[in-house]
Nucleic acid binder design. Structure first.
Lengths: 333, 333
DNA sequence: TTGTAAGCGTTATCAA
DNA sequence: TTGATAACGCTTACAA
């Protein structure tokens, strides 16, 4: 029971295949009679155009790709959901492609893009900041959009939130609560988003002339485990920080564990702030104060621009939102 | 700068395109000299076969689809990661397709499959239990694999874990700890996996002649919020259950919240057990006792079978693993 | 408003 | 071991 083709439709309807093609593509120059007849036959035999043949003739594929390096799974998941929502109801499908080795990123991504030739690709940080990758996309002619951590790099193909400002705001909130010794758990070294968040922390601390020495900063990689280790480190320092800001929610959860293991109460002994507002944030106890990153919305806008006409989706910058929950409280006296 | 085609390679190498095609497809009947020469030209001009043309000629696409209804995002994510791992290094790409409305599931899934014609599709529960969907896949000739909650329905195209037994084991653990009043938070009514887990709970309770009346069972939908609501309900009942088993980790997190809101200590006042062993389980405090579901491994095996030769991947049943963590303790005296 | 012919880039057939 | 030619199913000229 093989699929009917355009030829079957043409033969049965008694028209040429080009006419059928016109019906499929909603060409305006068609008599109603012909169109109706053809549509009837199409419905009758359950004809669906072959996408491969279409893609070959049109020289374009109905695939959009999401590419990331897996360093922030929840961010990637949010982006994926945003793209799926934007693509919903369209004829485009989403293909997901994580990369483990950002070393030869451009080369392996190129292989993938040439093998599948998606109509467009969305790059997540830190891949989205990789110049070689962007250049490669341009070379092979695959339209690409990027999700970035700051509006600085806007080359017209990026959507971004001002993560630096958002991070500074979160730290400012802690300072307003009376905290003076505030620790920071950083993300991956080479990740632009992680860097922006760290800059925001440093900004806020500098603004208030607070100590931001190395004893207050611990490195992580966005993962829970790394946050756990960093939290242990920071909470051993004396005097102990009264608050810790982590560059991701997962790391904040790790800090929470470290605090609990040392018998500390959150937020009475130490306040904790995350970044991202992933589902985890409100599922922790106490619910995590954090910064909402509109990953889904940005990814949706990017997907629309990739598949849609050359419209303007408005400004390339999205607003973050500070979300105060129960993991923060005034500094202990 | 348009992509070079097989014709360019053939012309430059001074052979026919069929010969180039043979090189690409590693045909054994080729002189080494010819092969080497063609390979050299391919590398030189950076030729990559056009996948659409290939798909058209071969009548098969290098796409594998993952289809689910979004009811258990973490399970879906684990499955997705498993498939990606299995597909890694192959020429297949993964396309992800969630469905919100399981009502016309077969119809909309059919549209998707006909539009993109993946080489295979993996169905997650509860879609994987939908007979109409399976029948439709057969009709349109798209190979499909299913992830199921029990080995019962094995039609040769399913991988499953014995979730009923696993759930019974988890409840048995609570009983062994001395718990007698054990509540249950159920998953979506029509989800076979949710049903299996409930049956497991009932099995274990019946085995020990324990009360399993309606006051001990609350409905949920796998989500954190539903678990929260169910937890509230169950913990208000008097006498209060000393332990609660939730059919998903996210719901268990919700129960944890409900307990905390009522001033209860976990596990001293009430033990909590989840299901799935998602990343959330170990990030909660106290770390959640749960059952590990090998979603990733099952999905990987399914992906391999979809794209690979007709090999046998061994038995269709995967082992679960009980993971005792700190959210459970002996029943209060 | 419709049809004919050519082509998209690959693989299959069958002969050389 | 190789190559000419015809598919694969659709779209875009260009005619009619």
């Amino acid at each position: 029971m093989t699929q009917p083709t355009i030829n079957d439709v043409a033969r049965i309807a008694g028209v040429s295949k080009k006419t059928v093609s016109r019906v499929i593509n909603r060409s305006p120059l068609l008599s109603d009679a012909t169109r109706t007849k053809v549509e009837q036959v199409i419905a009758e035999i359950g004809y669906v155009p072959n996408p491969q043949a279409r893609a070959l003739a049109l020289k374009r594929n109905f695939l959009v790709a999401l590419v990331h390096d897996g360093s922030d799974p929840q961010f990637a998941l949010a982006a994926q959901e945003g793209m799926l929502a934007a693509l919903h109801g369209s004829e485009y499908a989403l293909v997901v492609r994580p990369f483990e080795a950002p070393a030869d990123a451009a080369a392996s991504l190129r292989l993938f893009l040439e093998q599948h030739r998606p109509a467009g690709v969305l790059l997540l940080p830190p891949l989205s900041e990789n110049v070689a990758v962007a250049e490669m996309c341009r070379q092979i002619g695959v339209p690409h959009m990027r999700l970035a951590a700051s509006a600085q790099t806007d080359a017209g193909n990026a959507f971004a939130a001002n993560e630096r400002e958002a991070a500074a705001g979160a730290v400012g909130y802690l300072i307003a609560l009376g905290h003076r010794r505030i620790g920071f758990v950083a993300g991956p070294d080479l990740d632009a988003a992680a860097q922006e968040r760290e800059l925001g922390y440093l900004d806020a601390m500098a603004d208030h002339d607070l100590d931001r020495g190395p004893a207050l900063i611990a490195g992580g990689d966005f993962s829970f485990e790394s946050g756990h280790a960093a939290g242990k480190l920071l909470l051993e320092v004396s005097p102990r920080p009264t608050a810790i800001f982590a560059a991701s929610d997962a790391m904040a959860a790790g800090v929470l564990h470290a605090a609990r293991e040392q018998g500390l109460t959150v937020p009475a002994d130490v306040s904790i702030v995350g970044f991202g507002d992933t589902p985890l944030a409100e599922q922790l106890w106490p619910p995590l104060t954090t910064v909402r990153l509109p990953a889904g919305e940005m990814a949706a806008a990017a997907a629309r621009r990739l598949v849609g006409p050359e419209q303007d989706d408005g400004p390339g910058t999205f607003a973050t939102e500070f979300v105060a929950r129960a993991s923060t409280s005034p500094a202990p006296a």
